[in-house]
Simulated assay, not measured.
Amino acid sequence: MYPRIDHQTISTIVGHPEPVLRNLQITQTYSEINLALSQLLGKNNVSWCAYATWASKTAGKFIRLENVDAAIEEFLRGKDWVRELVRVIPGAMTWFGWKVKINNSFLLKILNETAKASAKEVAKGNLLVFAELAPLYTQFLQSIASNPDQKESNLKAFLDYLWQNQSKENAYDKLEKAYTAYQEAIFETDPKAKAELIFYANVLIGYHEQIRLDPAINNSLNAPIEQILKKKLLGEMEQLIEASIPRFLFQLLSPFLKSYLGPVVQHMATEWRKISTKMLMRIEVPDGHLDLSEDIPLIAYEPAKMFPEELLVIRNPELLKVLEDLDCSPDSSAGSAAKDWGNLGERMNFIADFFRSAQQDEHMFWPPFNAEQTALIKQGKVPPGKL
């Protein structure tokens, strides 16, 4: 018996103010929706919610700032821009007759603040997609039945709900096609045709989701390190010299200091994108993780194959049209690597192959947390230990 997901549960999670617990509840709910959908779609093919489960779990690591200190310390170690910053700032202050100490501890504090800014963007994206799509999946489960006599009326009722709840800033045409394909898959008896319909729906929903997430992803990659650094440095300097010179004089000197810092800070921002990209460009999966900057590996459950048998060659014409737009390497996972996760086209090229490769992997039905952790999450508590 699968847990029943209702709109009130979704609304409560969406309204939760604490991002860490909210993310855990989002991850768990995606997993439960995926299991509930298997009663309609069958247990051979996972829905988009399976991928959302593990993407949300991956986002949770960033939201909780796991391993951020170690990553930043490695980032600071031996970088030319660090030595330059340590040299330039005291030199500038000495020129004015003041002394200020810039060291790794000071920079670590700034980078931690920047990481928190990135984490906020990740949490924002995690919430945005869940708040939009979880109610639709919930309504789909409530509206659609496996009774063929109710097929047309059930789909109409669901699509009416879909369009009534369309967000003003985003068209739902992809979602209409996706959920229609899900319903067709329920009644499809040919295993290959069913698998292609589910893959088509998953890719369309993934495409819709990534369009919605694009600003949050790029904001998290491009955290405002320049603004934070300049604000912190100038703030510290202002406090340091405020007692010794008139405030208006410091304000006159401030533009000069900013221009003096400019090149070094810009270099620092470039380096930050590298570390934030490294942290974001991997996804947890049930039996390990995928590096998004590398090609999708051969599937373990059908050795030496890139995709499951039923998805090796695509016949569905609508699916072929979508893949023609999104997949740069048709019928192959070679070339699926995304070098810039901030690029929507590169993301979708990877996602299309990932969805296709993992659609019939039974591990994707695994729960994201153990029984004890799940119980605490449902009680509104963050479990101790590794999540």
Rank of each mutant, 00 (worst) to 15 (best):
M1L: 09
I10C: 07
I26Q: 08
T27K: 00
Q28D: 06
T29W: 08
S31W: 00
L37Y: 00
L40Y: 00
G42D: 00
G42W: 01
C49M: 10
A50L: 03
A50M: 09
A52E: 02
T53E: 00
G60N: 05
N67E: 14
V68D: 15
E74V: 07
V88E: 04
P90H: 01
G91F: 08
A92P: 01
T94F: 02
V100P: 03
T114D: 10
A119F: 12
N126E: 07
A134L: 13
K151Q: 10
E152I: 09
L155V: 01
K156N: 09
A157F: 06
L159T: 11
A178L: 13
Y179M: 12
T180Y: 06
E188K: 15
E188F: 04
P191L: 03
K194V: 11
F199T: 02
V203W: 02
L204Q: 05
N219T: 08
L221C: 03
E226D: 09
K230W: 11
K232Q: 11
M237E: 11
G262C: 10
P263L: 15
Q266D: 14
T270Y: 10
R273P: 14
I283E: 07
V285H: 05
H289N: 13
L292H: 06
D295L: 04
L298N: 06
E318M: 09
L320W: 01
K339S: 12
G342Y: 04
S357Y: 03
Q360W: 00
P368E: 00
L376F: 07
K378A: 13
G385L: 06
K386I: 14
